[in-house]
Computed example of a mutant assay.
Amino acid sequence: MTRRPAWRRPAWFARPAARIAFQHRLAACGQQVRVTRPPHRHRGGFALAVRLRVPDVMEQTVSIVFSPGAPEVPYVYADGPSESPHRYSDRALCMWFPYDPPEQRWTRSDGPAALLGHVVAHLLREEWWRRTGEWPGEEAPHGT
């Protein structure tokens, strides 16, 4: 006899109203936002593409992806230059240490505008690093 897996609450983005609200709150930041298909490894998730225009950084599209396996953790990808000491092997931005306390990383209760702030700050740090070789701000140790 096989056991059925325990019931788990659906991801927050399983409800259309929650997805639409997140998208509209992100668009309220003055950026162009559209819903996209999540990458294959995040199949069944929720993804948005945001066209970012940040002074001193080239204009680029950022993909914000929420995966069913970890619905509270955003995976963020940028289509601009990817040389950075703070990117994962799949080119996702490494914006904070995953085990940092909530006040040091983004949580959904912070809202989409705060997430966009983390993304912009990270992209500015990457640009500074490319120009100077120095990473401004705190760093956590990285594996390969």
Rank of each mutant, 00 (worst) to 15 (best):
P112Y: 10
P98F: 11
R131G: 12
P141H: 11
P16C: 14
W96M: 03
Y75S: 14
E127L: 07
Y77C: 11
R9D: 02
V35R: 11
G143H: 08
H24I: 08
M58K: 03
D100T: 06
V57F: 00
R15A: 13
T36L: 15
H40L: 09
W7G: 08
Q23T: 14
A113L: 01
Q104D: 14
L48D: 02
G45Y: 01
Y99W: 15
A47P: 04
A27E: 14
R41Q: 12
H142D: 13
H24G: 06
A18F: 07
A17G: 13
A47M: 12
D79A: 00
C29W: 01
M1Q: 05
S67Q: 02
R8N: 04
D100G: 01
A70K: 03
P39M: 01
E59H: 00
H118R: 08
H86G: 01
G45T: 12
P85S: 04
F13S: 01
C94K: 01
V73R: 05
G45E: 07
A27C: 11
W129D: 05
T61R: 03
G80K: 09
Q104P: 00
R41P: 10
V76W: 09
H122N: 08
P101R: 12
A113S: 13
I20Q: 12
E103C: 12
H40E: 12
R87C: 03
Y75I: 09
W129Y: 13
F22N: 00
V35D: 06
H118S: 06
H42D: 12
H40G: 15
E134H: 13
W128P: 07
I20M: 13
Q23H: 04
A28E: 13
S84A: 10
H86Q: 14
L48Y: 14
A18M: 07
P55S: 10
V35I: 12
A17Q: 09
P68N: 01
Y88M: 06
L124R: 15
M58L: 13
R91K: 02
W12M: 08
V76D: 00
H24V: 10
V62T: 09
A121R: 07
D90R: 02
D56R: 14
T36N: 06
R3D: 06
V33R: 01
Y99D: 10
G133D: 03
P102I: 09
Y77T: 07
Y75K: 00
A47D: 11
A70N: 03
P10L: 02
E126A: 11
A17S: 15
P136Y: 04
E103K: 09
M95A: 11
V65L: 05
P55H: 02
R130H: 02
L26I: 04
R131Q: 15
L52N: 03
Y88C: 04
E126D: 15
W135R: 05
W106Y: 10
L123V: 03
P102W: 05
R131W: 04
V76F: 02
G143L: 15
R19W: 10
R125I: 02
H40A: 15
A28T: 11
R8W: 01
P5V: 03
R108K: 08
G69F: 03
E139R: 15
S109R: 14
D90S: 06
G111D: 12
R91L: 11
A21Y: 04
Q32C: 12
T144K: 06
P136M: 07
M1P: 08
